[in-house]
């Protein structure tokens, strides 16, 4: 691993994962734009850590950029997790609620 070849493979996989499934051109643009949105959004979130200290923010930003490349296209996961399946939404609501209570009670 780590060779030029595997990086190329990675990029190729990154691109081809979009085209699998329903690959009409307009759906493709949606997926590509969505992925880029998520990337930018995660970078913005990472940059929030500057309010604690600026070097920490930079380190986390770099880590996020790395993670984005490693974990490939996230848009499929995002789409799955945001589907309107009742059980899934219930699960996420419970998590949210627990996090809110935990943060406000013990934060």
């Amino acid at each position: 691993m780590g060779s030029i070849d595997s990086l190329y493979d990675k990029v190729k996989r990154f691109v081809t994962e979009f085209t699998s499934g329903k690959s009409t051109s307009s759906a493709m643009t949606g997926y590509m734009t969505g992925e880029l949105q998520i990337v930018v959004f995660m970078m913005i979130l990472a940059s929030f850590f500057r309010i604690f200290s600026i070097p920490l923010g930079m380190v986390i930003l770099a880590a996020v950029v790395g993670a984005i490349f490693i974990f490939g296209p996230m848009i499929k996961t995002i789409e799955d997790e945001n589907s309107s399946d009742l059980n899934r939404v219930l699960f996420w609501v419970m998590i949210y609620f627990a996090v809110i209570i935990a943060v406000t009670l013990w934060g």
């Binding site: 419970m94 627990a98 209570i101 935990a102």
Partner: peptide, 13 residues
């Protein structure tokens, strides 16, 4: 497991 933990947090709250 995550859901159970969340429920326990809710119960404690």
């Amino acid at each position: 497991i995550i859901a159970v933990i969340a429920l326990m947090i809710i119960f404690v709250g």
